[in-house]
Amino acid sequence: MSHLLEVRNLSKSFGGLQATKDVSFTLDEGEIVGLIGPNGAGKTTLVNLITGVLSPSAGSIVFRGRDVSRQRPWQAARSGLARTFQIVQPFPQMTVLENVAAGALFAGAASSRAQAEREAMEHLEFVGLADQALRPATALTLPSRKRLELAKSLAMKPKLLLLDEVNAGLNTAEIDKALALMRTIAARGITILLIEHLMKVVTSLSTRVLVLHHGELISQGAPQAVLEDPKVVEAYLGSKFAARLAAQAQETGVEHV
């Protein structure tokens, strides 16, 4: 069967720095896939490549059967690729409602501004911001701004949602709420690529995890298997610790994939 998103041998270099090296993976419809990696691993670069903010130096991206390697961000948005930003990007002087309506009007299915606002209101209710609809976006707290980003992306009627650190800076209670939201979104049939530092979020949501390190995809598979992969342990905790862990594992007779 054909995949929703297929990334083939994707590379991106900035001058001498190779931010993404020969990365290949696929996403299927309805999946929640986690993308993890230490700081500077190239996670956000990968998202920027997929959404057209950056053009790949080599390789290709196929989304819903079309090669989209060279598309511009606005084309990506209209084709069903929505993302949230690690650092939130609202339209500061507009109301919360207008922010979301922008997504519905320009990338979503809304045919008029009035309809866009009606749809926006539904998305705001979904993320729990309906009572803040008329406040300026800048008046929101950080967790609310993250939810605003989420509502804006949902208004774009995405097929694939790329969530870049939506949970960074949230406390435990807020994270639990965010988890519930993401489950509901996935249940609506939206495929999610989850870029995340918090292992709790990754392991409890993802069906599959991709691990980037120095721009390379070093491991992928089920969450637990990936977390026990020596290469992943080494990337996060260094080679010494990885060796010790491997030795320990052999003593206790735990098998690795």
């Binding site: 959404t51 903010v53 511009r72 961000p73 606005w74 948005a77 209209r78 993302r83 990007q89 609202p90 339209f91 500061p92 002087q93 507009m94 207008e98 309506a101 922008a102 997504g103 009007l105 320009f106 990338a107 008029s112 501004r113 804006k152 774009m156």
Partner: peptide, 26 residues
């Protein structure tokens, strides 16, 4: 002022990158 065009222009004036990201042909 009332049209999609005006709304898009206001988005651009506030955050051009975000405008691009929501599908506006900046």
């Amino acid at each position: 002022d009332r049209s999609k065009l005006g709304f898009g222009l206001r988005c651009i004036s506030q955050n051009e990158d975000a405008a691009d990201m929501v599908g506006i042909q900046v």
